[in-house]
Amino acid sequence: MNEINKKTVKVTRFDPDQDEEPRTEAYEIPVQDDWKVLDALNYIKDEVDPSLSHRWSCRMAVCGSCGMQVNGEPKLTCKTALSDYEDTVEVAPLANFPIIRDLVVELEGFMEKMKTAKPWIMSAKERAAEEGPTSQSPEELAAFKQFSMCINCMLCYSACPVVGNEPDFLGPAALALGHRYNQDTRDEGSSERNEIFRDEGGVFACSYANECSQVCPKNVDPSAAIQQAKLLNVIDWAKSFVVPRGGK
């Protein structure tokens, strides 16, 4: 049997039509010991205050919608047990993002940054069907597989001190994903991507705080990807003086 006890959940509220600034509201609610933080938010919305806005979908840590600051740390609320916290839990929208309403943040800037890093396979010419599928060895796959596990939950952006201070910084997820395609043996776009990575807000804007990797719920380790991308970028940059562009 689940034991029922009470917890106070402090939630950031912001209504753009009424509030000048985000404010905090406290809800004392009955909770069950197997609840996640998301369950508490859903309880508040269903039973206490239907005006509460928050994003969620899959409840199983793959959709990446329910990222929020829980007691000051970026967390997927569907993966974070309420029982890990004392009697009071504070839930706030992701840091470093403009706040649209309550716990909902503006994603469009993130989407633009993702696109800038060109996270797709670029090849010089289309492959004819007769050529068959491209092959890739398990070793070649291992070089980037970890970096492809990103679910775009943006916790890393919320943890990064550079994101909040350098608006042009492409950020952990975008750079890690770009690096993932640079490492993919099927891809031919690395020099194009490396030029973007060398530009303002690219890999060199990262100061290796390593916090993105600490908060990543999928162990993508974006900071590793970015540091590796820096080294490979420098090599690519040096090569660009020796071998003319287009030479492999």
């Binding site: 600034e21 993002f97 503006e106 993130f110 608006p167």
Partner: peptide, 22 residues
């Protein structure tokens, strides 16, 4: 945080509250 942190290039339809540092 900087007020333009993670801001889209064209503003959305509603007013937003400025981003905060971690």
């Amino acid at each position: 945080a900087r007020v333009d942190s993670m801001k889209p290039s064209t503003p959305g339809p509603t007013r937003t509250a400025p981003p905060r540092m971690p």
